[in-house]
């Protein structure tokens, strides 16, 4: 299994922006809400979404394209459920990595087989010393453990400690990601 690489370096900038500054207007938000659980599977899905929202199919399509160009939409795709395809073990690995090295090593770790997401996050000492997160997916815990070994080897002496947090149960999972707008105060 190889993993695609798609990196973002804009985290700090975009976190400082409000949704409106990111260029999502009310119609965009309505389209996001109407499509985030999936498109209607009909010959003209944009028209079907448009009818629901009182927009033309052309406008829906144009706005989807614009959101994709701005990076609000990563891609419009058939999204596989890897669990159903046999990737039944997922381990959230967390690593305590030397701050001076974490950026370089994070990029390297992200390219290792089995890693789907790789993020730098803050430590909260003394309870939480881990600053690098890498999500691993395998067909068994043994496979996830051998992937974690590969990460451990790559991180070398810069890594002081790590853990693999297996998920024992999915208690909620939804593709619904954009919150409905809160009333303006």
């Amino acid at each position: 299994m190889s993993v695609s690489i798609c990196r973002s370096s804009q985290g700090s900038v975009r976190d400082a922006l409000s949704p409106d500054e990111r260029g999502l207007d009310e119609r965009d938000r309505a389209i996001v809400l109407a499509t985030q659980a999936g498109l209607p599977l009909v010959p003209d899905p944009w028209g079907a979404v448009g009818r629901e929202l009182g927009l033309t199919g052309e406008e829906v399509l144009a706005r989807m394209r614009a959101m994709e160009a701005r990076g609000v939409i990563r891609r419009i795709a058939a999204v596989p459920n890897h669990y159903r395809l046999g990737y039944v073990a997922n381990g959230m690995t967390v690593w305590d990595v030397d701050d001076a090295e974490v950026e370089r090593l994070g990029r390297e770790v992200a390219a290792i087989e089995g890693v789907s997401h790789c993020y730098r996050r803050p430590r909260h000492l003394p309870h939480w010393p881990y600053n690098l997160f890498a999500m691993l997916h395998g067909r068994s815990r043994e496979e996830v453990e051998s992937q974690a070994e590969a990460l451990r080897a790559r991180l070398g002496e810069a890594c002081r400690d790590h853990r693999i947090l297996y998920s024992s149960r999915i208690l909620k999972k939804t593709g619904l990601r954009l919150a409905r707008r809160a009333p303006q105060a």
Partner: peptide, 16 residues
């Protein structure tokens, strides 16, 4: 359930 959906994958860090 082989596909979880057919549709947009939003970058929710950019959408909120």
């Amino acid at each position: 359930g082989v596909l979880s959906r057919v549709g947009p994958v939003f970058d929710h860090a950019r959408a909120g």
